[in-house]
Nucleic acid binder design. Structure first.
Lengths: 236, 236
DNA sequence: AAGATCATATTTGTCAGACAAATGACAAGT
DNA sequence: ACTTGTCATTTGTCTGACAAATATGATCTT
């Protein structure tokens, strides 16, 4: 486990990533004892100070466990902070199994309807307006890039309108991970606005404060985009 | 911000908690610049080494941001890892507003039905059996403590049966936070088994692989325990 | 021989001091 | 007024040392 050459970020950030990826990808097995701090620091050509800063962060993510005299051990995956953005991103990078993507998709399909329901219940007029603005931008989008930007804006506005930072935090983490796998689902350039009616339906339900209608509209949208995603996969 | 006297844990763990709580509770405002590392270390009577280990962890949780020359700043709450177990626990400790508890409850009401649906779809025979064992233990529980233990066992077994560590991780974090606020909802000692039929209904739905029935049963159970929870609040 | 007790070595935890690198602020020059 | 360059400040990194905890094995006791 030697540190990769390139990279201009902070040293400890690189160490965190290096070790974190090794653990999450399974190179370092759970229960396996890591070499001592001094030895590990030497292997990676960093000082023990920097190494320790990295180890504390990894311990905070639940990936490792340290005790005096015993040394460090990789913790069992049940203790990992699976919802941590880094852990998730390392899993995505590690050529994951198909079923991991399905788990992410399952999460999305739980969260998104719940999010629009919450937004329909609690959105303020200003928040509704922000969603409306995003929707207009989607409608007027001249090309795919503009549409993608407006789509992102729409989702963000809905997230804010939920007025529940736990929900939006979760949403954001899951979406980021999913974005690793799927290209924008409107790749077929000509009909990139195909999901506009669905977005409008969601907006209308939120405007009329109809949680159930919003959830139904969102589920319809998901079912629709599901098929499109199958075509547009990026890399195994 | 001086470090509290007592406590036998690691020094950096205490520093993490001290600063983390100050930030989450709002004593340190977002955007506010923290004193320099040297000065802060002196204030807390720890070495800069230890302080930095703590700062890196807090940065990983999204609470602070450090840049050379500029120093450290508290980040805007939108960047916090709201689903981090520590952040959540600090919020719970900080005499939170009522609406925070409602956000937690909302999360639970989203997750739990989804979890039992997933379990109904994908549980293995062994996982079903584990749920059944827990259910039997609940039924045979002679007193409140035994019942609480069996209840925990039941929930854990369902969690495992979802076969989605993202879901179970989320579940676990939210439940832990909620447990801070509510005493066991069966406080009225005599009828502490009142929710047994609900649990049995959930089990039956999972056994028969009926996701929708499982979700309905769970929602019924939640609605039922909602009322009980109102009575048993702990501390504002 | 078996078990309890203690010494020791190893590993993480903590500290102190130094220098490097980055960068905002300010002065000087055009 | 604008650019350029120096400087001071703050985080980033390294080094070496000692403290505290504890697994291991040796020693002592029964």
């Amino acid at each position: 486990m030697a540190l990769k050459a390139g990279g201009t970020r902070n040293l400890h950030a690189r160490v965190i990533e290096e070790i974190g990826e090794s653990i999450v990808s399974g190179v370092l097995r759970p229960g396996e004892p890591l070499p001592g701090e001094s030895q590990l620091a030497e292997q990676m050509s960093v000082s023990r100070t920097v190494l320790r800063e990295a180890l504390k962060v990894l311990a905070a993510k639940g990936l490792i466990e340290t005790r005096q005299k015993t040394g460090m051990r990789v913790r069992d995956p049940t203790f990992w902070n699976h919802l941590d953005a880094d852990v998730l991103s390392w899993r995505c990078a590690a050529m994951p199994t198909e079923d991991f993507v399905e788990k992410l998709v399952e999460m999305r399909e739980i969260i998104e309807p719940a999010a629009v329901m919450a937004a329909a219940r609690r959105r303020s007029p200003e928040q509704l307006n922000a969603i409306g603005v995003a929707l207009d931008a989607m409608e007027d989008a001249p090309d795919l890039d503009a549409w993608a930007a407006a789509d992102l804006q729409f989702h963000d506005a809905v997230l804010v309108a939920t007025n529940n930072e736990l929900l939006s935090s979760l949403f954001s983490v899951i979406e980021t991970a999913l974005a690793t796998y799927f290209v924008m689902s409107a790749r077929t350039a000509k009909n990139f606005k195909y999901s506009l009616p669905h977005h409008r339906a969601v907006y209308e339900a939120i405007r009329r404060r109809r949680p159930n209608e919003a959830a139904v509209a969102m589920r319809t949208m998901i079912a629709d985009s599901r098929a499109n995603m199958r075509k547009g996969k990026r890399r195994g």
